[in-house]
């Protein structure tokens, strides 16, 4: 893997670990530190091949190397956005008495960063056809749905 790819991946790992750290501090548990990056990388690893296959089936997929580069860039964008939101999220969490606030704040940060990453991914892949746009929309909703459900289940377990 080239140096160009290692930096976004590092950010993609650092951001979720930092957000998980906020929940870990409030919940007095180590699990969030590992769970957040696991959900992010796990869901992307599970759904990314489907994006390439479905887009290729519409006849509008860019070369596989371009798709991989776009996914890595989008993951990096996700991590950078999270790193920028860590300070406000930590402040809001630590200045609150309720752990529910921590869950709301960290969820909002993850959701915001996820939407930014999807927007970046769409830009990197480029709108090649209506079919590709529909595939991307369905894939985005599916990925967000899976990740959102996993995160919600995990957060619920932590606070209950």
């Amino acid at each position: 893997m080239s140096r160009v790819h290692s930096r976004p991946i590092a950010f993609a790992a650092l951001g979720p670990i930092a957000i998980g750290g906020i929940l870990a501090v409030r919940a007095d548990q180590l699990a969030p530190l590992f769970a957040v990056p696991a959900i992010v990388f796990g869901v992307v690893a599970a759904t990314a091949p489907a994006l390439y296959i479905a887009t290729a089936a519409t006849g509008a997929a860019p070369p596989v190397a371009t798709v991989v580069r776009a996914l890595v860039t989008a993951l990096g964008a996700f991590g950078i956005a999270l790193v920028g939101l860590v300070l406000p999220a930590a402040f809001l969490s630590l200045s609150s008495l309720s752990i529910t606030t921590t869950v709301v704040v960290t969820s909002a940060a993850l959701a915001g960063a996820g939407l930014l990453a999807l927007r970046r991914l769409a830009g990197e892949l480029g709108a090649r056809s209506l079919g590709a746009a529909v595939v991307f929309g369905v894939w985005s909703l599916t990925t967000l749905g899976i990740a959102g459900r996993l995160w919600a289940d995990f957060a619920w377990e932590v606070i209950s």
Partner: peptide, 13 residues
């Protein structure tokens, strides 16, 4: 606390 968010959100796009 907020200014880094401007840089980070912009950089992510």
């Amino acid at each position: 606390l907020s200014a880094p968010a401007l840089s980070a959100i912009g950089a992510s796009l």
